[in-house]
C-alpha cells in the first residue's frame, strides 16, 4: 500500500532529517504504547441479564432503586498493580428489573410513594471489594458485592431485612491476550449474576419473608428478621 508520505520513511540522502524524525516518532509510539499499559483499568458491568427460570409467585413486587445504588462505583489503587475502577451501579436497574420480573407475576420500578403493590424491595450496596492476580498470586480476578436487602409493605413498614454477599471470579488465563479489563469485567458480571442467584435461592427461606408469603395481606407486627 502506498501513501503520499510513505517515501519519507526510506533512508536516502535527500531526506535524512525526515528519517531521523520518523525514528523518533516510532520510538515515541512505543513509549506511549508502553505507558498505556500502565494506565487505570476501568470496567463497567454490561446491563444484560438472563431471565430467571423459576415458578413465579403471584404477587406484585416493586423495587425502589436510589441514586446511591444506580451510580455505585469503586475506585481504588491497590498496593500491587494499577488503579482500578469498577462501575456496577448502571447495571442495577436491569439486574433487579429482570430478577423481579422473573420471580413475581408482576413487578415494577417504584418511587418513594408506591401504590398498588404487595411489597417494595429496597436494595443497597454496602461494599464492593476486588482482588487481582497481582494481589493474590493466583490466576483469578475476584469481585465481592455486599448488598443489604429491605422488603417493605406498601404502608412502609418493614417486612424483612437481610444481607446478601455475591461473589464472582474470572480466570485471567481466559483473557491472557486482552489485558486486565475483560477479566475484571467478567468477574464483576459473575458477581452480579451470583447476586441474582443468591437472591432467588435465599428469598423464600428468610423466616420473616416466609411468614409474609403465607399471608401477604397481614398487617405489620412481627419483628423483622
Amino acid at each position: 500500500m502506498s501513501s503520499p508520505t510513505g517515501s519519507r520513511w526510506h533512508r536516502n540522502s535527500a531526506t535524512p532529517t525526515l528519517y531521523r524524525h520518523g525514528r523518533r516518532f516510532g520510538l515515541a509510539i512505543m513509549v506511549l504504547a508502553g505507558l498505556a499499559g500502565c494506565g487505570a483499568t476501568r470496567v463497567s458491568v454490561p446491563a444484560t441479564f438472563p431471565a430467571p427460570l423459576v415458578d413465579k409467585l403471584p404477587l406484585h413486587v416493586g423495587v425502589r432503586l436510589d441514586e446511591a445504588l444506580t451510580s455505585y462505583k469503586l475506585h481504588d489503587k491497590p498496593e500491587q498493580g494499577t488503579e482500578i475502577e469498577i462501575e456496577v451501579g448502571a447495571a442495577q436497574t436491569a439486574l433487579f428489573s429482570t430478577l423481579l420480573n422473573g420471580m413475581f407475576t408482576q413487578s415494577s420500578v417504584v418511587t418513594e410513594a408506591a401504590t398498588g403493590v404487595d411489597a417494595v424491595l429496597v436494595p443497597s450496596i454496602q461494599e464492593l471489594q476486588f482482588s487481582t492476580p497481582e494481589i493474590t498470586k493466583t490466576d483469578y480476578f475476584e469481585v465481592w458485592i455486599r448488598y443489604r436487602m429491605q422488603l417493605y409493605r406498601p404502608d412502609n413498614t418493614l417486612i424483612a431485612e437481610w444481607p446478601l454477599t455475591a461473589y464472582g471470579q474470572a480466570n485471567a488465563r481466559n483473557y491472557s491476550m486482552q489485558g486486565d479489563q475483560p477479566a475484571l469485567q467478567a468477574a464483576a458480571l459473575a458477581a452480579c449474576r451470583d447476586a441474582m442467584t443468591f437472591f432467588i435461592v435465599q428469598f423464600r427461606t428468610i423466616p420473616a419473608v416466609e411468614a409474609w408469603l403465607r399471608d401477604p395481606t397481614a398487617a405489620a407486627g412481627a419483628p423483622p428478621a
Partner: peptide, 28 residues
C-alpha cells in the same frame, strides 16, 4: 447457562448426578 439461569451457576450447579432428579422436580 442463560437458558437455565440460575440452576447451573457456580452457587447452584448440581455437584453430582444424584442432584439431577431433585432439579427436575422444578416444573419450569
Amino acid at each position: 447457562l442463560d437458558a437455565l439461569f440460575p440452576w447451573f451457576e457456580p452457587r447452584t450447579a448440581p455437584a453430582n448426578s444424584d442432584d439431577v432428579p431433585g432439579l427436575m422436580q422444578q416444573p419450569a
